[in-house]
């Protein structure tokens, strides 16, 4: 994950704590989405950015996941996201991102 983004996530987690703060992802691919979820929960596995060795414990969801999708206005979801459900590998992305909330 981009270093600038890691820094902002770290600052925000410090400010708000990890109880009421969640991360919503829009990754194009399972591995990269999983990597982002891992970075904000367990720390940056690539040891490149500020979150290397910093487990913030934030919960991350992909916007495709039911937990998010079901709470969004269906019309807005349809306009903004639905087309990409036809394009990307939804199941693989969801399965990968979910792993980092359970572990």
């Amino acid at each position: 994950m981009d270093m600038g983004i890691q820094q902002r996530v770290m600052d925000l987690a410090e400010k708000y704590g990890n109880e009421d703060l969640i991360v919503v992802l829009g990754g194009a691919e399972a591995e990269a989405s999983g990597l982002a979820a891992e970075t904000v929960s367990k720390g940056d596995p690539t040891f490149a950015g500020p979150l290397a060795g910093v487990p913030l414990g934030l919960k991350a969801y992909h916007v495709f996941e039911e937990e998010i999708k079901n709470e969004v206005d269906p019309q807005v979801y349809d306009d903004q996201v639905s087309m990409m459900e036809m394009v990307l590998d939804v199941d693989a992305i969801i399965n990968e991102v979910r792993t980092y909330r359970e572990g």
Binding site: E29, E31, A32, M83, V87, L88
Partner: peptide, 19 residues
């Protein structure tokens, strides 16, 4: 693909088809 960005042209073609 190994960097996690997927197959960019392929995704674009699928987007055009999805449209």
């Amino acid at each position: 693909v190994p960097a996690g960005a997927g197959d960019v042209p392929q995704a674009n073609y699928k987007m055009i088809a999805a449209l």
